[in-house]
Design a protein around this nucleic acid. Structure first.
Length: 136
DNA sequence: CGTTTGACTACGC
DNA sequence: CGCGTAGCCAAAC
């Protein structure tokens, strides 16, 4: 599953989806994962468990210079997934606040207010992606 | 090569 | 609510 050339497709699909998240909105690893088409060679249940972490893996390898808004992806609890106080966490929070995303006292984003509704129809058709699953 | 790490989540207590 | 943990495996070392 996701061996070459599919691995490349998976990562690039992640980046393309993340590119669609507008300023001021956030998405989660799981939400991104749910928009990726199922792989014919993998059980859906298995993919459901694995995909979110692979989204994280894909984002870690985000290409520089393509203006991919990596900072708009946080975890399903509304938290930045880098260790609190790390330079990366600080930068991610700064970038989000710059766009108007608010954090509560515990450093969490209210997903009901800021979660991305998902890509529009045109994008879904163009990339043959599935409709987004509602955030839990 | 073998071992560790990791930008996750759901679920139970 | 918060905290611990099982499930899972590609990358990174």
């Amino acid at each position: 599953m996701f061996n070459p050339p599919n691995a490349k497709t998976f990562f690039e699909t992640v980046w393309e989806i993340v590119l669609q998240i507008p300023p001021g909105a956030v998405s989660s690893y799981g939400q991104i994962a749910s928009m990726i088409p199922p792989d014919a060679d993998m059980e859906p249940e298995r993919m459901r468990r694995l995909a979110p972490r692979w989204v994280g893996t894909a984002l870690r390898k985000t290409p520089r210079g393509k203006s991919i808004p990596w900072h708009r992806v946080i975890n399903s609890r509304g938290e930045i997934s880098f260790p609190a106080g790390s330079p990366q966490a600080d930068e991610q929070r700064r970038l989000l606040e710059q766009e108007g995303v608010e954090f509560d006292r515990r450093g969490r984003v209210d997903l009901r207010r800021f979660a991305w509704a998902g890509p529009d129809e045109a994008f879904l058709r163009r990339w043959d992606l599935l409709p987004p699953r509602a955030l839990g």
